[in-house]
Simulated assay, not measured.
Amino acid sequence: MTSRPTAAQHLRDLARLRRVRDRIDREYAQPLDVEALARDAHMSAGHLSRQFRLAYGESPYAYLMTRRIERAMALLRCGDFSVTEVCFAVGCSSLGTFSTRFTELVGVSPSVYRREAALATEGMPSCVAKQVTRPIRNREAPAPELDLA
Results as ranks from 00 to 15, higher is better:
Cys87Gln: 08
Leu11Met: 11
Ala41Pro: 08
Ile24Leu: 01
Leu11Ala: 13
Gln30Asp: 13
His10Trp: 01
Ile136Ser: 14
Asp13Phe: 03
Asp22Asn: 14
Asp13Met: 10
Phe98Cys: 12
Tyr63Ala: 10
Pro5Trp: 11
Arg67Pro: 00
Ser111Met: 11
Thr66Leu: 08
Gly46Cys: 02
Ser44Val: 02
Val34Gly: 07
Pro110Val: 05
Ala120Asn: 05
His10Tyr: 07
Gly91Trp: 01
Gly107His: 03
Met124Lys: 08
Leu32Trp: 00
Arg19Leu: 15
Gln51Val: 07
Arg137Phe: 07
Thr2Ser: 07
Leu54Met: 11
Tyr28Thr: 00
Pro60Ala: 06
Pro144Val: 12
Glu122Asp: 10
Pro125His: 04
Leu95Ser: 09
Tyr113Ala: 05
Phe88Tyr: 15
Gly107Thr: 06
Val106Lys: 06
Val106Leu: 05
Ala129Glu: 03
Arg19Ile: 07
Val128Lys: 01
Glu122Pro: 00
Arg23Lys: 13
Leu119Trp: 06
Leu105Asp: 08
Ala143Pro: 02
Leu14Lys: 09
Ser3Trp: 01
Phe52Glu: 11
Asp40Leu: 13
Thr100Leu: 06
Glu145His: 12
Leu17Phe: 13
Gly96Met: 04
Met73Lys: 13
Pro125Trp: 00
Tyr63Val: 02
Thr2Cys: 00
Ala143His: 08
Ser99Ala: 13
Ser49Gln: 14
Ala7Phe: 01
His42Met: 14
Val128Glu: 02
Glu27Ile: 00
Tyr28Met: 02
Ala129Ser: 13
Arg16Lys: 15
Gly46Leu: 02
Arg18Thr: 15
Arg50Tyr: 14
Phe52Ser: 09
Glu116Ser: 14
Gln9Tyr: 07
Ile24Lys: 04
Tyr56Pro: 08
Arg71Gly: 00
Ala36Leu: 04
Leu14Met: 12
Pro144Ile: 13
Gly123Cys: 04
Tyr28Asp: 00
Glu104Lys: 04
Phe88Asn: 07
Val108Trp: 06
Asp25Cys: 06
Arg137His: 09
Glu122His: 12
Ala118His: 11
Ser126Arg: 07
Cys78Ala: 14
Gln9Asp: 12
Tyr56Val: 05
Leu32Met: 01
Thr2Phe: 10
Leu105Glu: 14
Ala129Lys: 02
Ala143Lys: 13
Met73Thr: 09
Pro142Arg: 14
Ala41Ile: 12
